[in-house]
């Protein structure tokens, strides 16, 4: 069981449209081991978000299968998928999707409320601890609209972490933030990753961030094109591969030609 990958995709295809079909993902087959920090890069429209949403059980592949911890998500009902998302995955989106009706603390607790009867004292303490960790100790009771963009994104991070998920999915988490606050948020995520050994998949356009990953995968036109392990091959080699114009993954190359 130990060498079972956390995530396994097998020939995942995604086709949108009924009359005019457009295929967004082509036969994606890949695995992600537990604890890995994987960065997905690629040009706009290459299908990164689509792939991430499929991994995150927010969307279903048109064909192909997704296994998480050996469980076939295709066999889950919509209700089971929802419950699975809540327990297993923490989402961080580009735009901090928070609930404007609630304050910071309540927004963090929402993840817990969804499936639990009574909020326990421990969970309240954990929410407070997480907010403190993301540097919002003093804004716990503030309405969401009164927080800055960076602060809101940090509330979203705390919310994603509340249920101690095994997998964090972040889609351009700093996309809507200025460079400085973006950097702070990334640092926070790095710190959390180190402390918790969570698996994280992040979509980013930021080369700097990508270079800190355990593994980089580049997606082009819905196909896996390049794969690099920066920590194994070193920075120079990584940059060289990323800047080259040919793919280093076989099936992508064969279908590109």
């Amino acid at each position: 069981m130990d060498n079972l990958p956390l995530i396994e995709l097998s020939k995942v295809n995604k086709i949108y449209g009924k009359l005019v079909k457009s295929q967004i993902l082509f036969d994606i087959t890949m695995t992600v081991p537990s604890g890995q920090f994987l960065v997905l890069i690629g040009p706009s429209g290459s299908g990164k978000s689509t792939l991430l949403n499929i991994i995150g059980a927010l969307d279903r592949p048109t064909t192909g299968e997704v296994f998480i911890q050996g469980k076939n998500l295709g066999k889950f009902s919509d209700e089971e998928l929802a419950r699975f998302r809540n327990q297993f995955i923490g989402f961080i989106f580009q735009f901090h999707y928070l609930l404007p009706e609630f304050n910071a603390l309540e927004n963090v607790l929402v993840s817990y409320w969804i499936h639990s009867l009574k909020p326990s004292k421990e969970i309240l303490e954990r929410a407070m601890y997480l907010l403190e960790q993301v540097g919002l100790k003093d804004s716990v009771r503030k309405r969401i609209n009164l927080l800055s963009g960076g602060q809101q994104q940090r509330v979203a991070i705390a919310r994603a972490l509340l249920n101690s998920p095994q997998l964090i999915l972040a889609d351009e988490p700093t996309g809507a933030l200025d460079t400085k606050t973006g950097e702070q948020v990334l640092e926070l995520l790095a710190q959390i990753r180190q402390e918790s050994k969570m698996t994280m998949i992040m979509v980013t356009h930021n080369r700097e961030v990508a270079l800190r990953a355990d593994r980089i995968i580049e997606l082009i036109d819905g196909k896996l094109c390049k794969e690099v392990y920066p920590k194994t091959v070193g920075l120079h080699e990584t940059i060289k591969i990323l800047e080259s114009h040919s793919c280093n993954l076989e099936d992508a190359e064969s279908s590109l030609s």
Binding site: R83, F84, R85, Y97, L99, S111, R159
Partner: peptide, 16 residues
């Protein structure tokens, strides 16, 4: 719409 979308994304079931 936004709120419902978020709630669903982070795991609220259709029943919920």
């Amino acid at each position: 719409i936004r709120e419902i979308g978020i709630l669903k994304a982070i795991g609220t079931t259709n029943t919920g």
